[in-house]
Amino acid sequence: MHPALSVILFTTASGAGYGMLFWLGLLAPLGLLPMEASFGLTASVLGLALITFGLLSSTAHLGHPERAWRAITQWRTSWLSREGVASLITYIPAVLFPLLWLMDGAPDGVAELLGFLTAAMAVVTVICTGMIYASLKPIRQWYHPLVMPFYLLASVFSGGACLAGVAMFWHASPMLAYATVVLAAITLVAKLAYWRSIDRGPVRGPGDAIGLTELGTVRMLDPPNTEDNYLMREMGYRIARKHAARLRVIAVALAFVVPIVLLPFIPPVAAVVALVGLLVERWLFFAEATHTVTLYYGRTA
């Protein structure tokens, strides 16, 4: 699949954003984070900024951004629509929570409720995002049980790292950072398991696509049109195995290993490195995904 920058930025940034809101909304009411409203405000703004930036960049790749509002209408069937709805709803508690916190100095009472609500909605939104991909049968690397969980893990992990990074400036206890280290490890395991599994296939060929495997090996003789059309440019993206392997190492190092080492000491740096690493991981998530339409063009998928 073509790794469109807008989509990669969106999923990574908003993923981290929702992750931050999740932790903030969950831990602050429980008093496990700095109590200063200034902290609540800063963290929320940063989280919301990441989300908003992500949402905006995702509308960038629309053919008709001005019609984007229509995307919330089909929540009954469409994960994309659900994501839209969820993300919009999330704004309400996510904005009110820090405001109330600011007003009555502490995230309790109604704010407490709003915090939990924010955390819940963040999770829901990220699940929707993950499901958009996890529900696409033509792409075996996406139609995979680990995809949605990974989206969720990556979100809470990267969000945790970011929040820990912010919290450091308010001399928070390293607890969150430690928790994030654990999450990083789990997320990494999930990713490694995922890669292992998709590398195993099952792989289809042109014969499967045209349903004539019994005639023997099927090869493409000529494509229907000489130049690549939209379909092949959008779904026909190819990445060399060697190249992919190298990028996987970089992704693992930046997204997980380095952060695990740095988190206990300088969480902000760890967070930034993690985000960069996750961008690489997300790029691979697209680049390594093969679509069944490419079978018709003589490839395997």
């Binding site: 053919g63 019609r67 059309n229 959008e234």
Partner: peptide, 26 residues
């Protein structure tokens, strides 16, 4: 009403959706 998000073309296994890159609709 199409916003040109292209998701349907990802969802079609058979490559039957054609994006009009000029009009921005599927």
């Amino acid at each position: 009403t199409c916003i040109g998000c292209k998701l349907c073309s990802w969802a079609c296994p058979y490559g039957a959706r054609e994006f009009d890159e000029d009009a921005g609709v599927m």
